[in-house]
Design a protein around this nucleic acid. Structure first.
Lengths: 267, 267
DNA sequence: CGCCGCATTGACGTTCGTCAAGTCTAGTGG
DNA sequence: CCACTAGACTTGACGAACGTCAATGCGGCG
C-alpha cells in the first residue's frame, strides 16, 4: 500500500528531495561536469533572489565557496563553534536543536532542500545550536563575509538576505503559537500540514510523505513526549484522517487536519 | 515595603525605563531642543552599532525619519498592515503577539527601551503580528528603505542589522526551549531572570522590578494560564525566593531562581 | 464611594507525562 | 537465506501538572 509513497509525482531514483523544474534536466546527466554555481542550480528559486540580471547572476555564483557532504547523523555545525558560513541545503534533511545546560534539548526546526541554516551564528560569531543531518546530505557553503560584501553591491541579494532572516523570525513566531497554545492533536496536525506543504513546493505529493525524523524528534519539536506523538498518530488513523506505517504517512483528509488546527466555530 | 521599588538606583521621576549614561543629562534638561538624532541619544549603544567614526555617526542619524508617541494600549502596528519601518523603542514597554485564525493569541515577546521591533514585516512586506504599548511610549521611526540604503555604505550598520535579526532568531530559539521542555516554575523563573537582567543593563536594580504586563500576558508568553502564573508566584513567595505585591516584584534569592531554571545534578 | 479590571485561591477535571510491557523493522552476521 | 538484535514504535495503566470554573479580594479611577 505504501510501496509508492517514497516515489512521488516525478521519477527520482532516490528519496532525497530533489527539486522540480524539468528545464535543467539535461545538464543533470553529467553531474561531475556541473560548475559549483547557483546560476545553473535547479534550487535557485528556493534559496536565491529572483529577477536577477545575467551579470548579477554571475556575481551571485561567488557566494558559494564550495560544497560539503554530510553523512546521516553527522553535524554540519555545533553549538559553540565559531561562525563562518551560512549553508544552503542542496539535498537531504536536517534538524537544528538547542540544549539547556542541564542536558534537555529542543529541536527548533527541520530543514529541507533550498532552505538556509546557520543564521543563529551571526550575533555572537558562534553557533548557538546544532545542525544534524537526518539523512545523507549536501550543502552549499556560503562564507558570510562574502554574502555581506556582495549584498552591498547587489540590492536584490541584500533584500533577499533580510527576507530570509525575517522569514525565520516569522516561522519561529508560529512555532511559539503552536507550543504556547495548542493541544497535542493540533500540534501534530499543524506539523504534518506544514511538512507536506513544503514538500509539495518541491514537487512532491500533497498527500504522502516519508518522515525523516523519529517520533522523539517530532515530540521534541512539538513539545510533546514520543508516546504522545505515537498515540496522536494512532488517533488520526482511527479517525480515518491519515494512514501511518512507520515513517510513511498518507494524508486521507487534509480538510480534517486543517479543521483540527483551526476549529471553526459554527454558530 | 515596596514604595521604593519603582525608583531604582537613580532618580528618575517616572517609572519609565530611561537609560543610564549620566553623560548626556545636561542636554536632557531641554527635551524640546533635542534634534531627532542618534548621535546624541543616550540609548545609542543599545540600538546602534558601536565604534563609528564621526562621519558615519552623522550619516546614521538619517535612518531615523521621525519619532512617534504611542499611548498605553495603542498599537504601533498590526497584523496585516503594510510594512514600512523598523522602530527603535525610546521609552515605554511593548508586547508583540500573533493570533491564530480562530482567535487564540500568543505573546511572542516583551520589548523595552533600546530594542527594535518590526522585523517580522520584512519577508512579506506586511506585518504578521501586533505590537502593543503596555505603557505610554515613544519610538524612533526608521524607514526600512533607508536602513537598507545606508547599510550598503556603512559596513558597521550592515553588520548591525544582521546581528539584530540573528539575535531575535536566537532569542526565539530560547523561548522554544522554554515552551517545549520546561515546567511552570522553570518558565516563570527564567522569565523573571531575563527581565531583571535586561532592566539591569538599562541601569535598573538587579533585584526589583515592576511588571508592565498582566498575569494573563505573562501566561500567554510562557504558555501557561493566568491562574498558573499567579499560583507559581505564590509558590515562590512561600519559598522565600521573591516578594510580590501586585506587579511589584523583589527578588530575594537570585541563585534559587537560577537553580530552578537549571537544576544542577549533584551526584 | 462604588465600580471594574486584575489578581488570588480553592475544588475539580483533563491532558499529557511516566513507567512498563510488548511489537515491528531494518540491519548484521553467521 | 535466515536468525538475531538493537532501535524505533505502539499500547496500556496510572499519576502529576496544569487547565477550568467559580468565588472572593484588592486597588485604582471616575
Amino acid at each position: 500500500m505504501f510501496d509508492q509513497a517514497t516515489k512521488p509525482n516525478h521519477t527520482s531514483h532516490t528519496h532525497t528531495p530533489i527539486a522540480i523544474k524539468p528545464a535543467a534536466d539535461a545538464v543533470d546527466m553529467h553531474p561531475q561536469a556541473i560548475k559549483v554555481a547557483c546560476s545553473n542550480c535547479n534550487l535557485r528559486e528556493l534559496c536565491m533572489p529572483l529577477g536577477l540580471s545575467p551579470v548579477e547572476l554571475d556575481r551571485i555564483d561567488d557566494v558559494v565557496a564550495s560544497r560539503r557532504k554530510i553523512k546521516r547523523g553527522a553535524t554540519l555545525f555545533r553549538n559553540g563553534e565559531k561562525f563562518h558560513n551560512l549553508y544552503a541545503i542542496r539535498t537531504g534533511f536536517f534538524k537544528t536543536c538547542v540544549a539547556s545546560e542541564d542536558g534537555r534539548d529542543q529541536v527548533t526546526g527541520f530543514q529541507m532542500a533550498g532552505e538556509i541554516v546557520g543564521l543563529d551564528g551571526i550575533v555572537n560569531e558562534h553557533h548557538t545550536c546544532d545542525a544534524v543531518a537526518l539523512e545523507d546530505a549536501e550543502v552549499c557553503v556560503m562564507p558570510f563575509d562574502r554574502i555581506e560584501e556582495l549584498s552591498r553591491e547587489v540590492n536584490a541579494l541584500q533584500r533577499h538576505v533580510h527576507k530570509i532572516m525575517s522569514r525565520e523570525i516569522v516561522r519561529e513566531n508560529g512555532v511559539m503559537l503552536l507550543l504556547g497554545s495548542m493541544r497535542a492533536e493540533e500540534r501534530l496536525a499543524a506539523f504534518l500540514l506544514n511538512l507536506v506543504q513544503r514538500l509539495h513546493a518541491r514537487g512532491f505529493s500533497q498527500s504522502e510523505l516519508v518522515l525523516r525524523m523519529t517520533r522523539e524528534e517530532i515530540g521534541s519539536y512539538l513539545g510533546l513526549k514520543l508516546e504522545t506523538v505515537s498515540r496522536t498518530f494512532s488517533k488520526f488513523v482511527e479517525d480515518g484522517i491519515v494512514e501511518v506505517k512507520q515513517r510513511h504517512v498518507r494524508i486521507l483528509n487534509t480538510e480534517a487536519l486543517k479543521e483540527i488546527v483551526n476549529p471553526k466555530v459554527c454558530d
